[in-house]
Nucleic acid binder design. Sequence first.
DNA 1: GCTTGACCTTACCATCATGGGAAGGTGCAT
DNA 2: ATGCACCTTCCCATGATGGTAAGGTCAAGC
Lengths: 133, 133
Amino acid sequence: MQIGEAARLTGVSAKMIRHYEAIGLIPSADRRDSNYRDYGHHDLHRLGFIRRARNLGFAIEEIRDLLRLWGDTERSSADVKALTLKHIADLETKITALTEMRTTLMGLVSACEGSHRPDCPIIEGLAGPAHHH
Amino acid sequence: MQIGEAARLTGVSAKMIRHYEAIGLIPSADRRDSNYRDYGHHDLHRLGFIRRARNLGFAIEEIRDLLRLWGDTERSSADVKALTLKHIADLETKITALTEMRTTLMGLVSACEGSHRPDCPIIEGLAGPAHHH
DNA sequence: GCTTGACCTTACCATCATGGGAAGGTGCAT
DNA sequence: ATGCACCTTCCCATGATGGTAAGGTCAAGC
């Protein structure tokens, strides 16, 4: 099947399928006489794997490792688990940072009247902390 | 003062100070005879504002709006509040997405033995959902 | 006066994952 | 044979930041 159908079936855009091939995340696709890429079962399976991993926030290089492990019947599940735990830790770092921003902003927002008048604790907070005048 | 000292005092890298000038977030700095940029009070204040806004996750274009509001004595605090609430909503969208990833991954991880053996629910989950065989 | 070192300047490239668009080839249906 | 939908490669853009290279400025010390 052509790249467009593979894209439709896997949820990975044609653009990205070509990109993944260019960076060696997937092997070079077979070509027809027309020079069109040709995909089969196995390719769809692999693209689906990649899409699911992307949806879970894994970076491309992490997915490269996951694909290697997927294809390695000698793998230790401990390796997969370690990689995943590292990724979870990364997610938690981000979640924590975003949540702290949110908390601070909520505090500022709750102090802001939100009227036609210019007085605004949010702007004042950004302008410099502890600036009593 | 030179850009390096301004960077040290505000926590904004010299690189980024030049960048902010290039994109018009801050006005062009004064230059000495040497062509070195020259910063004063007012510039430090503005850079501090930008850094704090960045630390709270505001995007550059949002900061452009915030700076305009900061300098506008006719502003309505309602405008500042609206902009901030929008940003909080963006943060929450991201937090939700990351938290969902985390939850899914934790489920997979908890099902994974993490041993020397290859059997791994994480890999299986990525390879395709509901693939009983 | 000359060197050294710390600072500055601009300009270009890289990141990360993705999309947009141009210019042109392929293939099928009317 | 025309049109349309698809494909190809190539280049550029995003957002915020860092790196590096090649070169100018300036003060301290000899």
